[in-house]
């Protein structure tokens, strides 16, 4: 078995407006080896096959996939917003690449800044985000952003933005402003 640097928790969110938000969030499994990751990955639906309103989240053990968590509340996210048609051609590749960045500690000395990643399946366009713990840590956030953009294979013309969770929470009906872009 090949151990990972951290133990990770996979969460699944299914939107049911009749229940409180937190009740719709389920812990699927935890793992801390490469082999256990692939066993998990091969047993769950691909992100592109989930219903609209569902999310997967992969977070380090001890960090809940919500803004309110102590490890997230001063943080933010690198956000990739996808066009509708990308669900069928690119979503699964981009989400897997995101997972591999996290599990492989691809952000080097700044990997400890990473809290997790989320994929949101939405009718109006899916989203993938990498969450980090300190929005004010510009060096760490920018390093993660540059590596992440390169790993996703995005063209230099594609811009991805980083938003602080505090700004996103304050603007629930519209996109928060980008604090950084790459």
């Amino acid at each position: 078995q090949h151990p990972l640097q951290y133990r990770w928790v996979l969460w699944f969110f299914k939107n049911d407006r009749s229940r409180p938000w937190q009740d719709n969030l389920q812990l699927v499994t935890t793992f801390n080896t490469v082999e256990e990751f692939w066993s998990t990955y091969s047993h769950i639906k691909l992100a592109s096959k989930l219903s609209s309103g569902c999310d997967y989240a992969l977070f380090k053990e001890g960090i809940r996939p919500m803004w309110e968590d102590n490890r997230n509340k001063r943080g933010g996210r690198w956000l990739l917003s996808l066009a509708k048609q990308q669900r069928h051609i690119e979503l699964d590749r981009l989400w897997l690449e995101t997972l591999l960045c996290l599990l492989g500690e691809s952000f080097e000395r700044y990997s400890k800044e990473v809290c997790g990643a989320v994929v949101n399946i939405r009718t109006k366009g899916d989203k993938i985000a990498v969450w980090t713990s300190e929005a004010e840590n510009q060096a760490g956030v920018m390093h993660i952003g540059h590596v992440y953009k390169e790993r996703l294979g995005l063209s230099s013309k594609t811009i991805i933005g980083y938003q602080a969770h505090a700004d996103t929470a304050a603007k629930s009906n519209s996109l928060a402003k980008n604090k950084f872009v790459v």
Binding site: Q5, S39, G104, E105, S111
Partner: peptide
């Protein structure tokens, strides 16, 4: 040491039989 793996290394394990 730090458990750092590149993407190709991780992908090599994708279709190995699970032994957990």
């Amino acid at each position: 040491g730090k458990k750092q793996y590149d993407r190709e290394f991780l992908l090599d394990f994708q279709f190995m039989p699970a032994c957990i």
